[in-house]
């Protein structure tokens, strides 16, 4: 079974929600990424998203723009990210999702890309600028390789889009909490619950919420009606601020989020 799917089953049994953490791969370098992933898992992360840096990240706010630029400047590319995933697999079986934009994948070659995912132990893929309408080829390849292809739904999604996206997204659905880009926000919109209910009516697949979730109290607020939260920019901000103490800071931050995972 796909590691992501297995993780959701395991969490459900344990009556827990999923904590999904996003790291820009190669920020500030890939050695750091390699060190961070197993540590975050130990601190309570259930799934890791590794951001594949792109020169023109239109769906991202300032934090991920900045970390992506830094990752590119340190020479990060897909081949090196695959090598890093391979090495992480020596130490950890945490489900890993690559998240990024379509062009670097297209440039790598879709077939080669999926083959490398399979070989190195990547479990899923999220492509911010690839709606299902444009993803026929990638859908076919990921299905065959049993690799997840997770699509997004947004506050603007119509009932038809919700139906279509929930049908093809696997193993879970990524709900974007706000109309906007990734990044830390003080307040989350109050229409989240209604929209999630609407999605639930179309599918039994897990729904995770991302964009804007930045601390334990926000996570606690939304977790009762989703299956997991995705936190990225806030973690990267925390790593950036901590400087050389980044490892402790990231672990502490992860633990604070992990503490609210239980369903009570």
């Amino acid at each position: 079974m796909n590691r992501i799917e297995a993780k959701f089953k395991e969490l459900k049994k344990a009556r827990k929600k999923a904590l999904v953490l996003y790291l820009t791969a190669g920020y500030p370098n890939l050695a750091t990424t390699e060190k961070l992933v197993p540590e975050l898992e130990r601190a309570g992360a259930d799934i890791i998203e590794l951001g594949v840096p792109f020169s023109d990240p239109v769906a991202d706010g300032v934090t991920i723009q900045r970390t992506s630029a830094a990752a590119l400047a340190s020479g990060t590319n897909l081949s090196k990210i695959f090598r890093t995933v391979s090495r992480i697999r020596g130490k950890s079986q945490v489900p890993i999702i690559l998240m990024g934009y379509y062009n670097p994948i297209l440039s790598y070659g879709l077939k080669n890309f999926i083959a490398e995912c399979k070989k190195t132990g990547v479990d899923g893929l999220i492509c911010a600028d690839l709606p299902p309408d444009e993803a026929q080829e990638l859908l076919r390849l990921t299905r065959k390789a049993e690799i997840g292809l997770i699509f997004l739904l947004a506050p603007t999604s119509t009932p038809e889009r919700i139906k279509m996206v929930s049908r093809v997204s696997y193993p879970f659905i990524y709900y974007v909490s706000v109309t906007g880009v990734t990044g830390v926000r003080k307040l989350l919109p109050n229409d989240i619950r209604a929209k999630i209910t609407q999605i639930r009516r179309c599918t039994k697949k897990p729904v995770c919420l991302g964009f804007g979730v930045s601390n334990a109290s926000q996570a606690k607020e939304v977790l009762p009606f989703v299956d997991g939260v995705i936190v990225g920019s806030a973690l990267l901000d925390c790593i950036e601020k901590a400087g050389i103490n980044y490892l402790d800071a990231a672990k502490k931050f992860t633990a604070s989020l992990s503490a609210v995972k239980n369903i009570d």
């Binding site: 600028d129 309408d133 699509f151 999604s157 109309t179």
Partner: peptide, 12 residues
């Protein structure tokens, strides 16, 4: 051609 955009923009 095509429409390679974040889901939020598809309805727009």
């Amino acid at each position: 051609g095509g429409r390679f955009v974040p889901e939020t923009l598809v309805p727009a």
